[in-house]
Write a protein that binds this DNA or RNA. Structure first.
Lengths: 269, 269
DNA sequence: AACTACTGTTGACAATAATGAACCAGAGGG
DNA sequence: CCCTCTGGTTCATTATTGTCAACAGTAGTT
């Protein structure tokens, strides 16, 4: 059940902004694999350019081949580039940290960030992978993604990231249903303590969500007014991104949102 | 000698700017692997986010995980970002197409391009991999790279890309030696017909070349004067990139270059 | 200097995971 | 209706892989 390529590729996940270079033994320890195994894997990945080894410290880091592949993808399907300006705008408009992500395997990959200019802000590490079930972006994406995706997530393991994380498939599905009605995902401290997230999905050409744009604020700062402002801005940004990347909204999406939105402040139909 | 991960990763090389989406059977044919094998590999790579499958056409393409990894690398070791402005400047200054590459496994990965504004110009495909032995960038990199790198290239296969390609290790080594003296690499139509290349290496922290910046011009347009101008500009750009990316030039590099350069136009010592 | 505790690297054998031919189901085309 | 594509799946065979041990080099300590 554990293919060797899968094991090799999980090695890449141990590299992060905070830890861009890792030694062989260290990497073996974390991945739970044998030193020799990791060594062989890294060698062939270095050969392919996915990683590279500094010849002085012997440490490994992500390689130049990744940049090359990213350029190819970005040239063929521009996303990060068309996304960033909208993200900057969203952050400025709301005064809070904005970020965007895309479905990447069994999780969300953060592909764009613009941090708030406030001193007290939510700070995100570049390239972090976000679990579907514990983030507003994940909920928003699941709500409007393919049936197969949500099924896979709901049947998979639901790690408790904080004490607020929904680890029960039933309750998680209820939250997804809510998002499906309102048009956006909303979570409070389910992934990290004191972080409140509001996210709206954007769509690919087939009308399924391929990711979400979100605004993250310190939980204690969240008010009814700020929430409404963010929901509005996030939904608008998502729509811009959808059309900007050649996606199409599914039938009835904007209408549903509008209706639900207008009912939010006072609860009237 | 053929590890499964290596085979899996070579699948990624079939994606290009011109062909960003590939079907299963097609990919199996090109890679020479079995359909079932390719399918399994793509499945696990999709799971890791390296590739993704469109649910309508079933075609595969490079995934969002690549963008994520690229962001991590770029955040930790900014290269493409610091490189691009210099590249733009170089292209404008010389009036020809400029590009930059980094060592990526057994080849060079193109990580930056700025095309000439002239109608008749050298056009490059994004994300192309450049063979060391057939490009000016490769020669420049080999000349100032680690001994181990040039040894690996010289003992490896030397495919004839054009009729001008040096496929003999001895003659190739002579060309590298020349570059080691002059400080830059120079090739004429060794990789593509009617393309003349001049490249200068930039260095990492340890003083070894980690890539090269190059200017490519239509061969017939090359003159003595243009050549001198390009050599000068390329060398200067490379130095800027070296220092801009935290690299250090090896002892004696600039001096050697200066001396050789001044001897170029008229041949005096 | 010797000892320790690391590191990255290499080799050999047992065990596991990859392989590839055959097969299924569906979509077009003639 | 047949033929030929496509993506996807199954399963016995076999080769690749994981494991473990030993090796070499380095840094810190006694």
């Amino acid at each position: 059940m554990s293919s060797t390529v899968a094991k090799a590729l999980t090695l890449l996940d141990h590299f992060s902004e905070n830890e861009p270079e890792i030694g062989l033994s260290d990497l073996a320890r974390r991945s739970g694999l044998d030193k020799a195994t990791v060594h062989r894997m890294l060698s062939v990945m270095a050969d392919a350019g996915l990683v590279e080894q500094r010849h002085d410290t012997k440490l490994y880091r992500l390689g130049a081949g990744i940049l090359r592949l990213a350029r190819i993808r970005e040239k063929a399907f521009p996303f990060a580039s068309v996304l960033q300006p909208e993200l900057d705008l969203l952050a400025q408009e709301t005064g809070e940290t904005a970020h965007a992500s895309l479905i990447s395997g069994r999780a969300l990959a953060t592909v764009g960030i613009c941090e708030s200019s406030k001193a007290n802000r939510v700070s995100l590490v570049v390239g972090e992978v976000l679990p579907f079930h514990a983030t507003a972006s994940g909920i928003a994406t699941l709500a409007f993604g393919t049936e197969e995706l949500s099924a896979r997530v709901l049947t998979g393991p639901l790690d408790g990231k904080t004490s607020f994380t929904l680890t029960d498939p039933g309750r998680l599905n209820a939250l997804i249903e809510t998002a499906r009605r309102t048009g956006f995902g909303e979570t409070d401290q389910t992934n990290e303590i004191d972080v409140y997230g509001i996210a709206a999905p954007y769509f690919d050409k087939t009308g399924f969500a391929c990711g979400a744009v979100a605004v993250a604020t310190p939980s204690h700062r969240m008010t009814e007014a700020l929430r409404d402002k963010i929901v509005d801005a996030v939904l608008r940004t998502a729509q811009v991104i959808t059309s900007g990347t050649g996606g199409t909204q599914p039938a009835g999406y904007p209408e549903t949102v509008r209706k639900t939105l207008s009912s939010l402040p006072d609860g009237s139909a």
